[in-house]
Design a protein around this nucleic acid. Structure first.
Lengths: 227, 227
DNA sequence: CGTATGTTTGATAGTTTTCAACTTCAGTGG
DNA sequence: CCACTGAAGTTGAAAACTATCAAACATACG
């Protein structure tokens, strides 16, 4: 429980330019950074003494491991996403976050005690962030009840849109996740995911080379996503 | 997006006895009530001019209808749950809420503008409520990736625990939802749900008569839930 | 009663998982 | 330079699970 707080992320970015928007949120207006190498953990489930961060570059995944050893991936996080929700409300992390590639993160200092003092701006930002997160989960739940092709198509379109918004190509994608993680995130067996990629390639919708994906027929992909 | 805010609900209940816990949250300490008949809507997706409520008695469901006409049930709500999250943060309702039986609800007056003024108590309550909601969704996502038997077993154990916490029987359950709604909530076809009930009955785990469920072999049910 | 609605059951088709084998590729050491 | 090795990805065949279609059954209600 953390993540895609684009609303929060957006406001935080604005604040580093115009500190008045989010008074006292960043130390001296220059937020400390943290660099993670591939495989490094930002924090792990149970950690109580950490901080919240905004992703600046790179991708990370948040996950939990259940009693039976099963891994549940809760989210894939890229630039602009906020991680560390539990910490913001003073609870130990309910999930672990690990870097999938070299990642740069910026500290969010919501100094626990002063939340209510600084007016309603920070309050609303966090609330809206959580609200967006709820909507993300609600969407995941919805996706989970559709067949594999639709799930993958929706994911690729989401990822494509995000990459586009970050100024990169909509159609030439380099996935930061391996097959196993992506399969787990989509709730599929790795073999099923592989087969689905293959089928999309056979139909000329995608060109697939491991993590390098090219969207060839965007309309067909949108149709496969069913909306 | 609303619901199982047991944290929020709990505090609100305490507040009606000791208003100091949640200053100014209820009008004159006596919260206005609202009674819904079966099938009545509390609000519908898109409504902007509503309020947030705490369920006092009865059960309701929150749902959304997608473009393709598919219904997605986001939650089943009983006494203590809070409904109307979107409204609390000033957005139109993102889902509809309808009573599944006669229900009594109590108004939550978080008078939008004064959220930050009254100190951090209300702030933390809402945050914790949303946090619990995130955890509920995360659990739903997890459940959705298990086979039908396990899903039903987990649901029944959850429902049993909730009924027990409300002072009712853990083992003699009267479901407030019909098969179609429960199937939709669990992400199953109604026929699959019916068959799963039948199998549990054949194995002597449950006795099933439409909405009247008796848990006969609790250990076996726990085992079926896989934890 | 007759009708409408909700539930159960059976048969079948469709999808996904599982298990196993095979391929590819990067890294390693002879 | 090349064979060896292990991890990751792909493919095939069979099994497991679920949805769908159809029909029977039950119930409530006019």
């Amino acid at each position: 429980m953390d993540q895609s707080l684009r609303a929060l992320g957006g406001k935080a970015k604005a604040a580093s330019a115009r500190p008045a928007t989010w008074p006292g949120r960043f130390r001296n207006g220059i937020a400390p950074r943290r660099i993670l190498q591939t495989g490094d953990h930002l924090f792990e489930a149970g950690d109580a003494q950490s901080d919240a961060f905004i992703v600046r570059s790179g991708h990370l995944k948040s996950y939990r491991v259940h009693r039976d050893g099963e891994e549940q991936i809760l989210g894939m996080h890229g630039p602009g996403d906020v991680l560390g929700f539990d910490i913001l409300i003073g609870r130990p992390a309910s999930c672990s976050v690990v870097a999938l590639e070299i990642a740069s993160l910026e500290l969010v200092d919501l100094g626990r005690g002063e939340v209510g003092d600084a007016g309603t701006a920070g309050y609303m930002s966090v609330l809206e962030g959580m609200y967006r997160e709820l909507q993300r989960f609600s969407r995941l739940l919805y996706m989970d009840r559709h067949p594999a092709e639709r799930r993958l198509a929706e994911f690729l379109l989401d990822f494509s849109r995000e990459e586009g918004e970050r100024g990169r190509s909509y159609y030439d994608l380099m996935l930061p996740f391996n097959r196993r993680d992506l399969a787990c995130f989509l709730g599929l067996a790795p073999e099923t995911l592989s087969r689905t990629f293959s089928r999309f390639q056979e139909r000329g919708i995608l060109s697939v080379d491991n993590r390098e994906i090219h969207i060839i027929d965007n309309e067909a992909l949108v149709a496969a996503a069913g909306e």
